[in-house]
C-alpha cells in the first residue's frame, strides 16, 4: 500500500511515457528501418542498404519537391516575418482600434488550411477570379494565371501561406514589443533619439529570441505544409507544386511505394531536426542553468 502511494506519480505518468516511446520513437525506428529495405506495396524487413535514398535523390519529382520546399520555405518565412514585424510596429503606436485590427489580422490562423486553400483557389482562378476583376476594370490584357502555370504555381502557395500565418507572427512580435523595458525607451526618447532609431537600435535587437521562435514556428509550418498544397493546387499542375509532405503521401497511399514513403519521411524529419534540435537544446540548457 505504502509502495503504491509512493509510486503513484510515476504510475500516472507511465502510460503516456510508454505511448510516446512506442508511437513516437518506436514508429520513427520502424520508418527508419523500412527506409533501408526494398519494401513496395507491403513492408519487407530485410535491410539492403540505402537503395531507397538513392532512388529518392535520383527522382525528378523529389527534386522538384525539395526545390519547392526551399522556394516556399524562404519566401514564406521571410515575407511573414517582414509583414508581421511591420504590422506589429505599426500597431504599437497607440492605435485606437488596435483590438479590432488585431482580431482581423489573426483570424486566418483559426481556419483549416483546407478552407484557406479553397478560398484562394477561387480567388486566384484565372477565368473568374482576380484576373477577371482586373480585366473588368479595363485592363483587358491583364493575365494572372499563376495557379495553372507550372513555373509560378508554387508562388500561389506562398501567397495563401503568408495570408494565413503573418497575423500570427504579428501577434508574436507585438507581445515582444510590449515586453521591452519601458524605462529604456523613455530614456531614449528623453535623449532625443528619433523613433526609427529607437526601434532599429534598441527594441528590435532586444527581441532576438522572438525572431528565433517565429523562425522555428514558420520553418516547422513550412516543412509540414500538406493541406494547403492539396487544397490549393493538388500538387499540380503535374507535380509542379509537390512538397516533400505531398510526395510522401502520394508514395504511401496512392503509389503503394512504402520504401519511397519511408525514406522521404525520414528526410523530412532530418530537415525538421536540423532546425529544431539546436533550438530545443539551447532552450532546455538555458532553463537548467
Amino acid at each position: 500500500m505504502l509502495w503504491l502511494e509512493r509510486h503513484v506519480p510515476k504510475l500516472v505518468l507511465a502510460p503516456s511515457f510508454v505511448a510516446v516511446l512506442i508511437f513516437v520513437y518506436g514508429f520513427i525506428g520502424w520508418t527508419a528501418w523500412v527506409s533501408f529495405t526494398r519494401s513496395r506495396l507491403m513492408p519487407n524487413y530485410d535491410i539492403v542498404g540505402p537503395i531507397q535514398y538513392e532512388r529518392l535523390f535520383a527522382s525528378p519529382r523529389w527534386d522538384t519537391a525539395m526545390n519547392n520546399l526551399f522556394i516556399f520555405g524562404v519566401l514564406f518565412i521571410v515575407t511573414s516575418m517582414v509583414l508581421g514585424l511591420m504590422l506589429a510596429i505599426f500597431l504599437d503606436q497607440k492605435i485606437r482600434t488596435e483590438g479590432v485590427l488585431r482580431t482581423i489580422y489573426l483570424y486566418p490562423m483559426a481556419l483549416s488550411l483546407i478552407v484557406t486553400g479553397t478560398a484562394w483557389k477561387w480567388i486566384l482562378n484565372p477565368g473568374l477570379g482576380f484576373e477577371s476583376v482586373v480585366r473588368g476594370w479595363g485592363f483587358e490584357t491583364f493575365t494572372f494565371d499563376w495557379l495553372i502555370n507550372p513555373d509560378m504555381a508554387i508562388y500561389t502557395v506562398v501567397i495563401a501561406g503568408v495570408w494565413q500565418a503573418s497575423g500570427f507572427v504579428m501577434a508574436l512580435f507585438l507581445a515582444g514589443l510590449r515586453s521591452v523595458d519601458e524605462e529604456i525607451i523613455k530614456a531614449a526618447q528623453v535623449d532625443g533619439i528619433p523613433t526609427h532609431r529607437i526601434y532599429s537600435a534598441i527594441i528590435i535587437p532586444s527581441m532576438a529570441p522572438i525572431f528565433l521562435s517565429a523562425f522555428i514556428v514558420l520553418a516547422h509550418l513550412a516543412i509540414k505544409s500538406f493541406d494547403l498544397v492539396i487544397a490549393l493546387t493538388g500538387g499540380g499542375p503535374g507535380y509542379a507544386t509537390d512538397l516533400p509532405a505531398t510526395y510522401m503521401y502520394a508514395m504511401a497511399f496512392s503509389r503503394g511505394d512504402i520504401g519511397q514513403a519511408a525514406s522521404s519521411a525520414m528526410v523530412m524529419m532530418g530537415v525538421v531536426f536540423a532546425i529544431v534540435v539546436p533550438y530545443l537544446y539551447s532552450e532546455l540548457r538555458a532553463k537548467n542553468d
Partner: peptide, 16 residues
C-alpha cells in the same frame, strides 16, 4: 522526450 514528440513531422509515423 514528450516535447520532442511535438515537433516530429507526422509523415514519419503515418505508415506504422
Amino acid at each position: 522526450l514528450m516535447l520532442f514528440g511535438c515537433f516530429i513531422p507526422f509523415q514519419v509515423v503515418l505508415l506504422p
